[in-house]
């Protein structure tokens, strides 16, 4: 199948629809669709798209898609991947938003949201746990994490300022050091 803007859009629409299960299962899904099935990308191009996705602000999966679309068909290809990936979840979230606004005050919905709210806490903690297992490898990285934690939890400093400060701190502490992603 040719990598036209139209085909790129439909390929990413499919991936956006079945994109459950987090970043890592999504990367495997992307590879199967784009490298093995459609043969639009080489393994090296794909590996580069994963790195760029993680090196840029925003969701890594969306950003890898933009890189791939740009590689295949320039700016139009890049836009096709975003619209394709976002459209299914956008339609779904509009439906959920409508239901939420209409029914969030009825008792059964309130009880459900009570359970859901507790699960969200568990979810966020598990993300902290997983990211920590991957990135907190030595005393330097642990001290970065603890410092920003205290600055936000105790002193309520602005998180964007803290991210900028951490970037500057990294520049000083890790100067010239090689970085391993993943």
């Amino acid at each position: 199948m040719e990598a036209s803007v139209r085909n790129i859009f439909f390929a990413f629409l499919k991936m956006g629809t079945f994109a459950f299960g987090g970043v890592y299962s999504m990367i495997a899904f992307f590879e199967r669709e784009l490298v093995l099935k459609r043969k639009w990308l080489s393994h090296d191009d794909f590996a580069e798209s994963v790195v760029v996705g993680q090196l840029t602000p925003g969701p890594p999966i969306i950003n890898s898609g933009i890189f791939i679309g740009y590689l295949l068909r320039g700016t139009k290809g890049a836009l096709a991947t975003v619209v394709g990936q976002v459209l299914p979840s956008f339609v779904m979230i509009l439906i959920l938003a409508y239901v939420y606004m209409k029914y969030s005050d009825i008792p059964i919905m309130r009880s459900m949201l009570k359970g859901v709210g507790a699960a969200v806490v568990g979810l966020v903690v598990s993300v902290v746990f997983r990211m920590g297992k991957r990135s907190l490898k030595d005393y330097k990285s642990v001290s970065f994490a603890i410092t920003t934690f205290i600055c936000l939890a105790v002193f309520k400093l602005n998180p964007i300022a803290l991210i900028i400060a951490a970037g500057v701190g990294g520049l000083i502490v890790y100067r010239g050091g090689a970085l391993k992603w993943q």
């Binding site: 990211m131 920590g132 990135s135 603890i146 600055c151 991210i163 951490a166 990294g170 502490v173």
Partner: peptide
């Protein structure tokens, strides 16, 4: 980014 990655975990 080596500084930002652990920092966002703290946030």
């Amino acid at each position: 980014f080596s500084g930002i990655r652990p920092a966002v975990i703290g946030l």
